[in-house]
Amino acid sequence: MLTKRIIPCFDIKNGRVVKNVSFLTNQRDAGDPVELARFYDEEGADELVLLDITATLENRGTMMDYVQRVAEEVYIPFTVGGGIASVEDMREILKAGADKIAINSAAVKNPQLITDGAKRFGNQCIVVSIDGKYNRSKGDWEVMIHAGRTATGMSVIDWAKKAESLGAGEILLTSFDQDGMKNGYDLKLTRLVAEAVHVPVIASGGAGKRDHFYDVFAKGKADAALAASIFHFKETSIGEVKAYLKGKGVPVR
């Protein structure tokens, strides 16, 4: 039986893993990406996600360097995102040893990038990352880009479906409302998206305790769950979360 995945996420700034609370405030240092990658591989992480949150051109060199070093250290798949805007960027990062590419703002601005990437590297390589924020007046979740600074007016569910039809192999869905709050994933949004698309959905934003993982699989219908600070700051471990899930009948590795 296919197991549910637990994925630690590294937000990387200037070559260091940092953790933001609600994106751009209260940053804390969580360590060296290569050391952390090795640690999580041994701990039983199913995959890793590395997001360069500075994602500037000057940082591209640093990014390639740690992608290569992480690739040397781990024997599990990892996804790299942040500032990837062309098929050429994708090729470079895959060549450096990444298994998948996450694209976010660039895909919104140029949806053709999803198709071009999928055609060249296969759908499974292209993870479309969507940041969603609840819009009370609309009663719907809206796609945010530029790390939440820009609202697009697009519905998260519509965009997820479109991304799938364009060739996305997976959707990485982050709840902007829940991210950094540690009071659980956005179960409603996760479930809506997971049921709207036929590709796997990775839920992100809000993990604060073990129960939250159970909820996002059992109620949110997610295929994988992403978390950062809860693991980085050792509030729980991947082993503990998996043992707990196993006890509740959720298949895990």
């Binding site: 039986m1 296919l2 197991t3 549910k4 995945r5 199913d46 759908n123 499974q124 192999g169 997976e170 036929h198 590709v199 796997p200 295929d223 994988a224 590795r253």
Partner: peptide, 12 residues
């Protein structure tokens, strides 16, 4: 079928 495609993840 009515299930997630691709299969992505760890399976036995």
């Amino acid at each position: 079928g009515d299930f997630k495609i691709p299969q992505i993840g760890w399976n036995t």
